[in-house]
Amino acid sequence: MISVIVMNVADNVGNAIVDLKPLQTAIYELDGKEHSVSCQTEVPYGFKIAVRKIPKGEDVVKYAEPIGIASRDINEGECVHVHNIMGKRGRGDLE
């Protein structure tokens, strides 16, 4: 059963459409084929999971577009949210 939706082949994150637990195998579909990723952390419904390793400083990609950068190394299967990614736009704090 599909438990993650990845919007584009270029994406390194997908969205959980169930509540995922550590060690659970999450299934997603891309280009008509099934893929899987092993969850490393809890990924609540609607939150993002890394479907590939994302080294610190690299773009986090969703909808085939950058949605921010990894603020630390993110392992495949880890929950991706404000604790490990930051936006690149509107950063008045960095000016």
């Binding site: 993002k48 930051m86 936006g87 509107g90 704090d93 960095l94």
Partner: peptide, 19 residues
Amino acid sequence: DIRTINPIPANIAAGLSTL
């Protein structure tokens, strides 16, 4: 950081991470 304004807290609580 605009993230302290938008996305609004309700967006972040639901899993959206950046503007």
